[in-house]
């Protein structure tokens, strides 16, 4: 492998780790709310969270490019803050990937929360646990398989992302040139040997991730 390939692998892992961490932090409250709420807004929020499952990445990529560009609302906002524009930057990729992988993290966690039911939390309340305490010492440990599935799927899905990165990344070495884009590059330039190395690596990686998920977390198989 050449150094360009290695740096793309490193960048991809960095992106996936950042995105997974952010999704666990921001996705968990969303999953909790979706699992517990009786609000009429539940349907709307659930549908928005699931949108990336059915939308082509080109739709997300195109809108993000327009919205984060200099004429879009987010673009104007980030420029006003002195942050510059998000397309063609690593933070831009992170934000795009958070949207793209959102359902893959939120849904398994939400399912796990829902599976717990009301009873353990009611019991915790009768033992004078505050809701905050009950969440951390009852709900989270019980939902552990959901967190594991969500984290693994979010990570793997971000590694496998292509369409959005292609549309808003600009293919910059060390900033936005992730493995999937580099494979595409190699194929376009007819460098099939290098393409095979990376593409084969992706197949092996994805298989191992899913194998691990199914082997060590058999209860979650049905949820997939």
């Amino acid at each position: 492998m050449e150094s360009a390939d290695l740096s793309a692998v490193w960048l991809t892992l960095k992106l996936a780790t950042t995105v997974t961490t952010l999704l666990l932090v921001f996705g968990t409250p969303i999953a909790w709310w979706l699992a517990r709420t009786r609000s009429p807004l539940k349907g709307i929020v659930g549908a928005v969270v699931a949108l990336p499952l059915v939308l082509p990445p080109t739709v997300l990529g195109f809108y993000l490019l327009v919205v984060m560009g200099p004429h879009g609302p987010i673009g104007r906002f980030t420029e006003a803050l002195g942050l510059g524009l998000l397309p063609f930057t690593f933070p831009g990729l992170v934000i795009a990937s958070v949207f793209y992988s959102l359902p893959f993290v939120v849904q398994p966690i939400q399912n796990a929360f829902e599976a717990i039911g009301d009873r353990p939390l009611e019991v915790a309340a009768t033992l004078r646990a505050s809701p905050w305490d009950a969440f951390w010492s009852v709900a989270v440990p019980l939902a552990r398989p959901g967190f594991l599935s969500g984290a693994i799927l979010g990570f793997a899905h971000t590694v496998g992302e292509f369409g959005i990165v292609l549309m808003i990344g600009g293919n910059i070495p060390d900033k936005t040139r992730v493995v999937s884009v580099l494979i595409y590059d190699h194929v376009e330039a007819l460098e099939y040997t290098q393409a095979h190395w990376l593409a084969g690596g992706m197949v092996a990686f994805s298989f191992l991730v899913l194998l691990g998920l199914y082997t060590f977390n058999p209860a979650r198989q049905k949820a997939l």
């Binding site: 327009v66 560009g69 004429h71 397309p87 063609f88 808003i168 600009g170 910059i172 595409y184 376009e188």
Partner: peptide
Amino acid sequence: LLVQGENIAQTHQFVSTGAA
């Protein structure tokens, strides 16, 4: 400062949206 489009149509899109 270079950003690459995968083909000339996408490159045009980068410029026409003002992103580049």
